[in-house]
Amino acid sequence: MQPSIVEMIYTQKQDIISDWLSEINNVMPSGLAKKIPNEASDETNKKFVELIIESLELTEEAATEKLNEFAQHLIYLGWPLSYFTQGMQAFRRVLLETMSSMESISSKKVFETFYEIETWVDSIINQIADEYSGSWESTIHLQRMALKELSAPLIPVFEKVSVMPLVGTIDTERAKLIMENVLDGIIEHRSQVVLIDITGVPVVDTMVAHHLIQTAEAIRLVGAECILVGIRPEIAQTIVNLGIDLSKFRTKSSLRRGVETGLELTQRKIIKIENDDERIDSR
């Protein structure tokens, strides 16, 4: 940045700031203006404009750091990105107005200066936008991780029998995760029978069925058996109407009947405990 411009900004500092403050109040997103009390927004505005001007004399790194800090603070408070972009645009407008009102500068000079200011303002906008998108990405990442953890648990209910309840739509990525979880879980719990419960899966189309078939095949390869349970009437109808062949797999309507079959496959069954007196009687 040319020293002459910096100097000009400094001499006109008070005017620029007051002009900008009135400008920013005009362009402030209307939703935000309602949410935040005037004093707070005034203070933030002041801080922001001082930071912008201050960044002129700091080294690039120091300026970047200060800006990031400020942006992070506002992200934390929930200020929208448009506040920054509109604020910077307003700042540029104010600066150019101030400059064009000064007679000492020739139009050619104004043009040159305009270019410099443009670059400067744009770089600040970019930096702040980066900061914002970074924070969004990390939020999305955290949510995705949380979703992943909830997505496909394998629960060992009996020795050698495990259940994987599936809730929600299954897409390719999730199907992959399901397969990995189920196979690792089989090895870990030494399961012989895995019940996949699709009661909570709203739609079973050809793709979902394909993924389920693949999972069942993989389960067979590692040496366990898969039973598909929780097939609701409408799911049974779609499966048949779509012409999906599930005849190779064991399927059961409910988890309860699946558990019974699973125990049968491992040579066990659930029995009712007889009363002691009854047993004595029967002898």
Binding site: L183, E217, A218, V222, G223
Partner: peptide, 14 residues
């Protein structure tokens, strides 16, 4: 009887 097929192997095969 084939035994001990690893999950990763099973996934590749499928």
């Amino acid at each position: 009887v084939l035994t001990g097929i690893q999950p990763a192997v099973a996934i590749t095969l499928i």
